[in-house]
């Protein structure tokens, strides 16, 4: 058993890491680094889970760490990276509704809102060590930040990463608020993988052929004429 205070401060640092990665995902234009940052975020989550294990000692947390590591640090990023190779998109330049600065400000505002909302909804959770409460706030904020990614970025791949970020948020939230049975966590991960694969296939499918659909696709902003098909 490590010193609880040390662990708590480690966890706080990791929270900061999570937020920063999320902020990066919201604001970057570089697609290739996006996946790596997502993997980093997931890895941070694994770290948090492990740290939490040292405090709470619940075996579930170990399982979560393991599954998360396998799926979100290894499989999914690898898969998305492969897809990106296939469709040869490197950058996601345009922003919809929100530009990076606005979204960063907005995410801070959201964190405040969530903090206030949660503190009034869950008096008994806020009564716990502040770490747990803060974890819940960070988790929920991460969900909303991921959501911001889904609608402010135009490429489907980026949207998928936004979705994955949301999912990370849910995981974080779940870890700090309560202890879910492991089977559920596991099933969710499977679901996530299927979803990502499906979305990716669809994205590739939409990528595959025929010039004449370009106009229509343009609307969907999967890619633009400038970065051409192989």
């Amino acid at each position: 058993m490590m010193d609880a205070a040390l662990v708590e401060s480690i966890i706080r640092i990791l929270f900061a890491g999570v937020i920063i990665t999320a902020a990066y995902i919201i604001s970057t234009r570089n697609l290739l680094s996006l996946v790596s940052v997502y993997a980093l975020q997931s890895a941070t989550l694994v770290g948090i889970a492990l740290c939490l294990y040292t405090i709470e000692g619940a075996v579930v947390l170990l399982g979560i760490a393991l599954v998360t590591f396998a799926s979100k640090v290894l499989i999914i990023p690898y898969f998305i990276a492969t897809i990106q190779e296939r469709i040869r998109i490197k950058r996601d330049i345009e922003f919809h509704y929100l530009n990076p600065t606005t979204s960063l400000f907005l995410s801070m505002a959201l964190m405040l809102v969530i903090y206030m909302a949660l503190s009034s909804i869950m008096p008994n959770v806020s009564g716990k060590p502040t770490l747990f409460f803060f974890g819940a706030v960070v988790g929920l904020s991460l969900v909303l930040m991921g959501m911001m990614v889904t609608f402010s970025r135009k490429r489907a791949i980026t949207k998928v990463l936004g979705y994955l970020t949301m999912e990370n948020g849910v995981l974080l939230f779940g870890m700090f608020v309560t202890e879910l049975p492991f089977i559920i966590e596991f099933l969710i991960v499977i679901d996530l993988i299927i979803l990502v694969i499906l979305t990716a296939i669809l994205t590739v499918g939409i990528d595959s052929t025929l010039e004449e659909y370009h106009n229509r696709l343009h609307r969907f902003y999967l890619w633009e004429g400038t970065e051409d098909v192989p």
Binding site: V143, M147, T150, K159, Y163, M166, G169, G174, L195, T199
Partner: peptide, 13 residues
């Protein structure tokens, strides 16, 4: 997928 899944994540919360 996007609309349903993102919303469903909130359900999970």
């Amino acid at each position: 997928i996007f609309i349903a899944s993102t919303s469903m994540l909130l359900s999970f919360v």
